[in-house]
Amino acid sequence: MTEEKPLDFAREITGRLGGETITRCYQCGTCASACPVTKTTERYNPRQVIRLALLGQRNDVLKGDAIWLCASCYNCQERCPQKVEVADVIYALRNMAIRGGNIPAIYTEFAAALMNEGRLAPMSKFLEKKRAEYGLPPLKPANTEALKKILAATGFDKIMFRKEGAT
């Protein structure tokens, strides 16, 4: 079952921002029973994600779709008796997945929208109309040049548009 020493993967996770607390988990399942996503689908169970991670199942964790299903409601994190920062661990795992080129298409689309239009949700006639109804001023175009510079400086563009397997 083990593809590498379980602790190697766990150490990699604890070395990342948000992942520090993962080894505290004693599998009580409070996170799973608190999770609104787990209630609706069997595809995501935070306890199981952590279990797989601590057993060194890198591919199952980083290449599967589970980690992308977390709604970031922090119900789990609030209740965890071992103070595992469950939601933050999921973020850490997502960051690791992205750096490995495993990124769901929707996120690449978001990133592209941010780079090109300066916002995640594209503007539409409908939204413009709604804004006017609420008495909000029309939106100015975003300064995408400045944004591109910042995102380039942080390496965002390179990380987000990396293809799987690339180094």
């Binding site: 599998q27 009580c28 399942g29 409070t30 996170c31 799973a32 029973s33 608190a34 787990t38 169970n45 306890r47 119900n75 209740r79 008796p81």
Partner: peptide, 24 residues
């Protein structure tokens, strides 16, 4: 049941408690 409950809910209509827990 192997699992630590995340919430205890009270249903006032039936005056019953509901324990939410994952059977791991």
């Amino acid at each position: 049941v192997k699992g630590r409950p995340s919430e205890i809910i009270h249903d006032p209509a039936t005056n019953t408690l509901v324990v939410e827990v994952e059977d791991e």
